[in-house]
Amino acid sequence: MDFRAATPAFRWLLPTLLVAGGLAASSGAQAKDKLDDAARAQRAVQVLRDIQAIPESAIPDRLFDEARAVVVVPDTLKIGFIFGGRRGEGLLSVRRPDGSWSAPSFVKLTGGSIGLQAGVQSADIVMVFHTDRGLDSIVAGKFTLGADAGVAAGPVGRTASASTDEQLKAEIWSWSRARGLFAGVSVDGAALSIDDAANQRMYGQGSTPRMIFEGRTAVRTPNALVDFSDTIEEAAAAAHSRRAVSDAPVAASATPTVAPAATAAPVAAPETQTAAPAASSAVTTEALPEPAKKP
């Protein structure tokens, strides 16, 4: 076989082979990224379930019941040596007007700090939006926690009080779980932004956060992301039910306090009855002598 004669044909096929190889590599990389996105969603689901499973470390029922949006960023890395940095990727789901929870949008949490610090730490971050103002800001673009919206370290425990809300004017409550400990944490200075690349990989090209929240994406929501919104919906419904039950004894306890007053009335009846025989005996005693005087 004369390979010199075949060379022009290979020269013609070479660009086609390179393009095909490039497309295959790009497709493989995109498939891997989608698997990573799905794994991120599964980790976020597990973080939320773990935290809510322990009453002493759960998000308070009142805050979860009144939440406008929930953000979960698993495996957030905090690296520090004089200059510090924080980076994590997570999910954001919002409460719809009918009370249900939307499909989640992918988000990124980034930030920096300066000070005497050193080391690497991985933590799970959970944020609960109490108002729509901070939510509108993140949908419109990146915003800075603490500057564009007030952030407070959240209390823990299902029955924990959040009375400091009025004092701090918190629009967002935040928690962190590191080394198994779940506690309120300050994330002031960190930036929260939409991860458009991940959204378009999972929901289709051109997908925006509003399209995702309103269920108008070209691609059906993947199961891993449905699990996230379902987990939040279940947790919020459970929190609402517990609040209703905890409020019920207050109304029920008012009834027994009235009951003793009602039962106290019959106590006076025996006194009246005992007085009546005393009067009748007196009348009988005075009436006996009269028949004896007739003879």
Rank of each mutant, 00 (worst) to 15 (best):
G84E: 08
A191W: 03
A235M: 09
S113C: 05
S122F: 13
V139F: 01
A53L: 04
G154Q: 06
L181Y: 00
A239L: 03
E166H: 14
D50R: 10
G88F: 10
G112P: 03
G154I: 06
Q205R: 11
Q167G: 10
D195V: 08
E234K: 10
N223F: 03
F83G: 04
A147D: 13
T274F: 09
V47A: 08
A67Y: 05
P222D: 01
T16C: 11
P104E: 07
G146F: 08
S93G: 03
T159S: 09
R210E: 11
L23R: 04
G189M: 02
L14Y: 11
F10N: 02
Q167N: 15
E290Q: 03
K293M: 03
K32C: 01
M211F: 01
S281H: 09
T231I: 10
A237Y: 09
V45R: 10
A265W: 15
F228G: 00
V107I: 12
S229C: 09
E214V: 02
T7G: 03
T272Y: 14
L35M: 08
P97W: 08
V219Q: 12
I138C: 05
R49F: 08
D65L: 01
D124L: 13
T257Y: 09
S57F: 11
P249D: 05
L181C: 07
H240N: 12
S281A: 11
I232T: 02
W101D: 05
S27D: 08
E89S: 15
T110A: 13
V139A: 11
D65V: 00
A160G: 02
A235V: 09
E66W: 07
A29K: 05
R133F: 07
A44P: 04
I59V: 15
V250A: 11
G84H: 07
A39Y: 01
T255K: 11
D136W: 07
G180Y: 14
K108T: 14
E166K: 15
A24W: 11
D188L: 06
A160K: 06
L135Q: 01
R243M: 14
G206M: 10
S193L: 04
D37G: 05
A264I: 13
